[in-house]
Nucleic acid binder design. Structure first.
Length: 273
DNA sequence: AATCCTTTCAACCGCCGTTCA
DNA sequence: GTGAACGGCGGTTGAAAGGAT
């Protein structure tokens, strides 16, 4: 028997949030900043538990969230990152700063998993050599996958670099005002209610960049790859082990990768090996 | 037009790691 | 050193919307 859930108290409202509740939460965060979620319900008068408030903020109200269909590039990136990191949605989401981990998780479960299963079925039917693949072939295939994943990540990161932020944020898209969807993502739709509320916060985000900066908005301590950063030495700009790994390879040291001799950063999590 | 089935996604639940008294 | 409180994460659920019959 664990500790009782935080929302066990009576009188705690559940279910969909109303615009009025959203406004109450946003006004509070606008004034006090995200964090100290425990105090939010009592200070705002919201009949919601702290977890619910945090979730509503991080998954829906937080400025810079892109809603609507995923682009092909995002889709590919998610597939590659999932192959690399597994179901660590928060870590994956840190590479798609405009998407929430919940969104990515939902998209994976509803679209990508099916897509991949279908594709896998097709290839499995076509030939049985999948199973009888000798070790060397399997390794080569894995190497190719890793290489492809790294390439996709590099592409994504270099895209980000095209739009540098004055304050040197890791991901320039982070907290990008969402009034101007990128021209390359025509199918992007911003939820109007979220957008309206988010606009309320834009001034605040600009005036409190430190508070607003995210290792996810409130500073994830475990899941986020981005938070496990190492110093690159470039103006003190921190890089995650993954980014370091990518950039090291892209600086001309494209040595042949083998599983045995794979050159990984010192802080590469051993769980991925 | 009515009913049933499927899909989507916001929200909840329970667990885990971290922090702090 | 210990235990409670808190924040964060991933898995799961269920209501709503959309599509098929």
């Amino acid at each position: 028997m664990g500790r009782p859930p935080c929302c066990d108290k009576g009188g705690v409202k559940k279910g969909p949030w109303t615009p009025e509740e959203d406004l109450m939460l946003v006004s509070y965060i606008q004034e006090h900043g995200p964090g100290n979620w425990r105090a939010v319900p009592s200070n705002t008068g919201l009949m919601r538990c702290s977890k619910s408030c945090r979730l509503r903020w991080t998954n829906y109200l937080r400025p810079g969230i892109k809603r609507g269909s995923f682009t092909e590039q995002e889709e590919k990136l998610i597939i590659h990152l999932q192959a690399l990191l597994g179901n660590r949605w928060a870590a994956i989401a840190s590479y798609l700063p405009e998407r929430t981990d919940n969104d990515i998780k939902n998209y994976w479960n509803t679209h990508l998993k099916k897509k991949l299963t279908k594709a896998q079925d097709g290839t499995e039917r076509a030939s049985n050599h999948h199973r009888s693949m000798i070790k060397g072939q399997w390794e080569r295939r894995l190497q190719t996958d890793i290489h492809t994943a790294k390439q996709a990540l590099r592409d994504a990161l270099s895209l980000d670099e095209e739009k540098p932020l004055p304050n040197g944020d890791l991901h320039p898209n982070l907290f990008k005002p969402n009034h101007a969807p990128s021209s390359s993502t025509n199918n992007v739709v911003y939820a109007s209610s979220t957008e309206n509320i988010s606009r309320l916060l834009q001034g605040w985000m600009r005036s409190k960049p430190d508070k607003a900066r995210a290792c996810s908005d409130s500073g994830s301590s475990q899941g986020s790859v981005r938070c496990e950063s190492v110093s690159s030495g470039e103006e003190g700009k921190p890089l995650s082990w993954l980014e370091t790994w990518l950039f090291e390879e892209s600086t001309g040291q494209d040595q042949e990768m083998t599983l045995d001799g794979l050159q990984l950063p010192l802080d590469y999590p051993t769980e991925f090996l």
